[in-house]
């Protein structure tokens, strides 16, 4: 049954992965965050689907130096 829908699921999963990866790369390249620390943000980005990376970019991101 899942095989029937696989071609349609892959783009969705790919987009979610892109979001999470962008956020992860950003986390690793920056030292300061507005709230919390690196490990909490990694957990949020990886385990909260879709909304996790958005929350990170919206409120968690520190200043670009």
């Amino acid at each position: 049954m899942i095989q029937d829908y696989l071609p349609f699921l892959i783009p969705i999963i790919a987009l979610e992965l892109i979001l999470a990866l962008t956020a992860l790369i950003h986390i690793f390249r920056h030292r300061s965050f507005r709230f919390a620390n690196r490990f909490i943000w990694i957990a949020i980005v990886l385990f909260v689907q879709i909304i996790g990376p958005i929350i990170y970019f919206a409120i968690g991101r520190g200043e670009d130096s």
């Binding site: 349609f8 979001l19 879709i50 970019f57």
Partner: peptide
């Protein structure tokens, strides 16, 4: 990253809903 987030999330919604 506003453009990236907005476009990927709306694309996900667009694909997910009929599915």
């Amino acid at each position: 990253y506003r453009v990236l987030i907005l476009f990927s999330v709306t694309a996900i919604f667009g694909m997910m809903s009929p599915l």
